[in-house]
Design a binder for these strands. Structure first.
Lengths: 116, 116
DNA sequence: CTGCTTCTCTAGATTGTCAAGAGGAAATGG
DNA sequence: CCATTTCCTCTTGACAATCTAGAGAAGCAG
């Protein structure tokens, strides 16, 4: 039973970063981003539409991504989002901050006594 | 300027785990736990009293920590909390989950194309 | 036509955290 | 002795991100 816990929500505060990173690789529509995050996280995360779409609106409003209606591979209409230059900067900044935070948490979890 | 961003809030959802870990090392009072987390995180995190005390109440209500009034080193009264057995299990479980989550985020941040 | 899948989007509630404080008791400095 | 600072507990009210639980449209398969 060392394996696969049931999927859960994304770690709070990281969804924007994960979306930016995902659309940085290639323009994608919202639904696809959700699936991709589930896949790459290997089922650790599961993104709800009620989280996803507000996030896309948020990111677009802030100018970090830009949407455009296109046809999917399956002949449907979907809004494809791609990263802007500002979005690329934002992604770098959030990723850097995340590294610092997860390193800090790792330090705390590994602490064995009174180290500073 | 590669150095020390200004301190910010704890990553959402991790505060309980950080508190459990901190009191696991040695019984501590709330205020001290806050300072300790700031220290070990090297200023990455800064825990607000308005987050801290509700968290302690929450953890005690769930039976993961147990509080007791004692005198501090400085002759003051403070409520010292220590981990219960249930708390130890909970800490292990949360830490395991955290490892899975941060690994998943790392995978996403490092992705370069369509890997599954 | 019926039902399944893909895809977008909304409304309402919950939750964890924050900002901003109040207050008490010991130490410290004048 | 009084004033100030430091330590420590705790509360209130607001906010932002996420969730649950849907609706709705359009193509595909039976």
């Amino acid at each position: 039973m060392t394996a696969a816990q049931k999927p859960g929500p994304v770690v709070q505060g990281t969804l924007d970063m994960l979306i930016l990173k995902t659309v940085a690789l290639q323009p994608m529509h919202g639904y696809g981003v959700g699936l991709r995050i589930e896949q790459i996280s290997r089922g650790v995360f599961q993104v709800n539409a009620g989280s996803l779409f507000p996030a896309f609106r948020r990111l677009e409003r802030r100018g970090w991504i830009q949407g455009e209606w296109r046809a999917t591979e399956n002949n449907r209409r979907a809004k494809y989002y791609m990263l802007t230059d500002a979005g690329r900067k934002q992604l770098q900044s959030e990723a850097r901050e995340w590294q610092a935070q997860s390193a800090a948490i790792a330090r705390i979890l590994e602490a064995t006594s009174g180290e500073v």
